[in-house]
Structures are given as C-alpha cells and as structure tokens.
Design a protein around this nucleic acid. Structure first.
Lengths: 331, 331
DNA sequence: CAACGTTATGCAATCGATTGCAATAACCTT
DNA sequence: AAGGTTATTGCAATCGATTGCATAACGTTG
C-alpha cells in the first residue's frame, strides 16, 4: 500500500477491522482504551480522516446547507451588493458554527427547474435563498413538496414558502416621516420600483408623504451604480430640485451623494439623502449616510434557526424584521 | 412505495434494472430509444434525480471546489471586506460556470490543522484560499502533500504553494510616485503593516519615497473601519499634518476620508488620499477615490484556471497581476 | 467446574449510483 | 435450420464508512 487514505488502510496497519477503526475514531465506548489510543495515533500520523462523502451517504445526511442567490432581474453577472454579501457572510458564519458546510450556488434562473435541481441533487440538508428575485412562482411551487427551504424576502398572504424579511413598507414610511420632520417637502425616490422589496419601500414612502399632503416624485432606474449616478445627474440638471432624496439602497445612495455633490449642492443643507440597509460603509461616506437599518445579524440568525428547525422536521413560520431609522449627517 | 426518490424506485416502476435507469438518464448509447424516453419521462414526472453523494462516491470525485477564507489576523467575526467578497463572487461565478459546486468555509484558524481537515475530509476536488492571512506556514506545510491548492496572496522565493496575487510592492511604488508627482512631500501610510500583502505595499511605498528623498511616516492600525477612523482622527489632532495619505485598502481609505473631512480639511487640496484595490464603491465616494487597481476578474480567472489544471493533474505555476493606478478626484 | 456475565472485536448488510462483463433476444446470412 | 451478429439489458462488484448482531475471550460465582 503506497499511502493510507481510508479507514480500511488504518485497519490493516493496526491489525483490526474497519469497524473498530470507525468506532475508535468516533469515540465509541465499546472500544478498549488501548486500541482507541493506538488507532487514533495511527490515523493522526498518516493524516487519515473518514471520507465525508461515504459517511454522509451511509448516514443519509449531508451536513451541508445550500445557499443560493437567484439572480433573475439583476442580471449583473456576479454578486456585488454588499447588503447581500453581508447577509451571506452572517449566514455562513452561523452555519459553520453549527457544524454545517455551506454549498454556494449563484443561480441565473434560465428555466423553471433550477430550484428542483438544487433540491433533488441530494447534496444538502436544506436550502437558503438570498432574495426571491423574480422567482416567486418557482419558489412557491417547490416549497409545496420540499420543506427545508427558507428565503430572504417578502411574505405575502397565503404564501407557502417560508420567508424572513424586513417590513419594507414600514421602512419606506420611516424614511418619509424623518424627511418630513426635517421640514423637507420636495421628496424624490430613486431606484428600481419593480422588485417586491423596493416596491414596498416606495409604497410606504409615498403613503407617508401623501398623508402629509406632499407628493413624492419617483425616479425609476436600474440599480447598478453607474446607472443610478447617470439618472441622478440628468434629473438634477432639469426641473425643480428635490430637497430630499430617498434611495432604494445604500449603494444607490452613494451614487446619489456623488451626483449631488458634483452638482455643487450641499448635503444635507440643500438636499437631504437617506438610504436603505445600513451597510457597513454607510457610516463611512462623507457625509455619513442616514439610512434605514435592517438588522442583518438578526435576519441571518432567524433564517438559520428556522431552516434548521425545518431540517429537524419541526414547524417554523415566517418572520418580519422591524426596520429602524439611523440618523447620521446626510439629513 | 410512498414516493419514488432514487433510481431503483424508477427502475421498479419501469420494470427494468437500476443499471438501465442509470444509463438511460446519462444518455448512454446502448439503451434503446424507447426505453430511454420512457425512463426519462418517469424520472421527470416524479422529480427523481441521481443522488449526487452516491454518484460522487462511486466516481471518486466530488464536483466541488472548496473556497476558504482564513481569518487569522483579521479577527472580525465575519466576511466584510468588499474586496475579498468581490473576489469570492468572481470565483464562485467561474466555478459554477464550469459545473463545479462551491463549498464555502470561513475559517478561524485556532490550531494548525484546519487546513488538513479541509483537505482530508474528501468533500472537494480542490481548494482555493482567499488570502493567506497569517497562515503562511500552515499553507506551505499542507501544500507539500496536497497539490490542488491555490491561494490568493504573495509569492515568495522558494514558496511551495501556488499563489496568485498582485505585485504589492509595485502597487505601493505607484502610489508614492503618483503622490510625489503631485508635489506632495509629507507622506503617511495608514494600515496594518503585518500581513505580507500590506507589508509589501508599505515597502514599495517607502522605497519610492526614499528614492525621492522623502520620508514616509507609518500609522499602524488594525484594519476595521472604526479603528482606522479613530487612529486617523488621533493622528490629525497632533503633529505636522501629512499632505498625502496612502491607505492600505479602499475600505480603510473611506475611513480616512471621513476623518479628514471631519477635521475640516479639504481633499485633495490640503490632503490627498489614495487607496488600494479599486473596489466598486471607490468610484462613488466623495470625492471619488484615487486608488491602485487590482484586476480581480483576471485574478479570479487565474486562480480557477490554475486550480483546475492542478485538479486535472497538470502542472501550474504562480502568477502575478500587475497593479494599475486609477486617478480620480481625491489626489 | 459449569453456567453466566462482561468486554472487546469482527462480520456483513447498508446507503445509492456506476460500469465491466455476461447473458439474452432478435435478427441476418447462407 | 444452424451459426453468427448486433442491440439491449441485467448481474454483481465497487466506492468508503457505519452499525446491529454475533462471537470470542476472559472473569466471576455457586
């Protein structure tokens, strides 16, 4: 034998059966102290560890959780938004702490069976979706036959798949109320109003404005920085200036800040800017960005906790994170 | 049978053997057209797909690549730096495109066998390390016995593990030369000089300054935003003001920008600021950040390409990305 | 000393898919 | 009709670890 790699090799070396090696390594009590010590020493010496594939096959559990990010509308070719990446980071941390591996898939949903493939491949014990994208229907369909599935996103009445998300309507309302309180009257929403989450933010924002007798203007744009910046610059060049801007995300808000300062306007004196998410960098822009905070650590914890409950066969329901206003210097 | 889940179930339904089902699903030519169509229809109808675990065990390949981020010095509890996350995104994209799954591990190296565990668990065909952190020795040791391993980071003479990284010395030099060209004479480096990559950036920076007869001051600090900000504020409160600051990363540069503008100093008139990495947001700070660009897309492609070569048993060598100066408004 | 308990170990089945080889059926050739 | 192809399909071993049950070796007790 050239180099021992599997338990059977160690068994041969130690002159015992594979069964004993398996038991010795897992600390099974029915192996004698002496044998156990001897086998563990041999295994360590030769860098032999149980093959996880075989182990999982036998135990009918994979010890892995799938983490997928459906990129339906955001056709950006890769993972960019720090909000999602940060959520991903938190989730990965929590799962690793609980002894799970994380199987990452970025998905460009071309046909309707991407989720079936993920589910039926049998590589994971459960699946987390970071965002629903425009795949709401697909997720609903698969959720009827596959339990351990949790998504970050909105929960609608009658929804069958388990979703954790923040209350975007409340968040939009918070933003509007804060700006109104600051005496602003010419409100502008900047972002893509199509995805459900952004739609809710705008809805809450517009409703609160309406309640105060103020009209909220909408500047619809794709969400990547360059497009937001361009749209904003164009808007600032013509028509009445807004005195307050609500960006659909912090990343968008940074582009807004830049366009505003390039137009020679002072933030917040002439124009107030508020973002959404409270990503790490929001505290470090200049001026630091007022924003609506989504408690990601809590969101991630909820997703993981409910998913693992489902994995264990227990019931688990959707949950809503309450957003929070974080006032900094940009408003 | 309650619900068909495996190939044997389909075999029973179709009245054939498991072998035939396996061949039918994989499009093996020796199965008759009729049988193949019938079996594929059955499998689709019942959402049955081959169990990947069993498949991989049999084929002795996992179809997965491990992606680990050793967090040795940066004890931040989770993945935050957009540079690394962006690299992660690119890599994940490339691997998924080539049909690999990505097994993500965040590693807090507590003892020296974290890498052995990753390697010996047999869950992946190869391993990518995003950063060397302070684990250079461990990586070197494991690389002597495990080939398919590629790290992002520095390559030193005589190094045994395969690393892809940018030329940080050249990058530091670029930064210094640019600042000197702008007439700056009181240079300050801000960051943690311990990790090899930052050490190189500082070395190149200091060498170029020395060559111009200028001394570069070093403000050593941990890299998380709050610490950088605090260190910078303290520094600006006392002593001679620098007229140019080189931050070890763009994220650090953002904290620097904030501290500088809070101190009432104008960027770039009174103080020039230059970062490193050219993360997406660097173009969107105010003022937009001059920085040293590392071509991440190319770096990721190189890492994946060389790793897969190693996985296929071919030789592959280290590579160096040439950094590039990107001039924006902060200098 | 026989009967029994205890402790440590091995045997062999199992998880589910793949594949070399053998076997069968169907068809062709002369 | 016998011998020869060819097209399909099945048998059974294999990947490597786990574990219920059986068994061997030893000690204990009446």
């Amino acid at each position: 034998m050239s180099k021992p790699t599997k338990l059977a090799d160690i068994a041969a070396l130690a002159g015992v059966s594979t069964a004993t090696v398996s038991r010795a390594l897992s600390g099974h009590p029915s192996v004698s102290k002496a044998t156990q010590a001897r086998i563990q020493a041999l295994a360590r010496e030769h860098d032999v560890r149980p093959n996880q594939l075989a182990r999982n096959l036998r135990l009918r559990s994979t010890g892995a959780i799938g983490l997928a990010m459906p990129l339906g509308h955001a056709r950006t070719q890769h993972l960019t938004d720090p909000f999602f990446l940060s959520l991903l980071g938190y989730i990965a941390d929590l799962l690793v702490d609980r002894g799970y591996d994380v199987l990452l898939s970025r998905v460009l949903p071309e046909n309707g069976d991407w989720l079936d493939r993920l589910v039926d491949a049998g590589r994971v014990d459960g699946l987390l979706l970071i965002g629903q994208s425009d795949q709401y229907e697909t997720i609903e369909r698969v959720a009827t036959r596959y339990g351990p599935l949790v998504a970050w996103g909105v929960h609608r009445d009658g929804q069958r798949h388990l979703a954790i998300g923040s209350d975007n309507i409340a968040g939009g309302r918070l933003a509007a109320e804060h700006l109104l309180e600051r005496g602003r009257r010419r409100l502008l929403f900047v972002g893509d109003p199509a995805p459900p989450e952004f739609a809710d933010r705008l809805a809450g924002f517009a409703a609160a404005a309406r309640a105060a007798g103020v009209r909220a203007e909408v500047l619809a744009t794709a969400m990547d920085p360059d497009r937001v910046h361009a749209a904003m610059r164009t808007r600032l060049a013509v028509g009445t200036l807004p005195d307050a801007i609500f960006a659909a995300s912090d990343v968008a808000a940074m582009s807004v800040l830049r366009a505003v300062s390039e137009a020679g306007l002072d933030v917040p004196r002439e124009v107030a800017v508020i973002g959404y998410d409270d990503v790490t960098l929001a505290a470090h822009t200049s001026p630091p960005l007022t924003t609506i905070r989504q408690d990601l650590a809590r969101g991630a914890a909820l997703m993981v906790e409910r998913l693992l409950a489902r994995v264990a066969g227990e019931a688990a329901e959707h949950a809503v994170i309450v957003p929070e206003l974080v006032v900094r210097a940009s408003t």
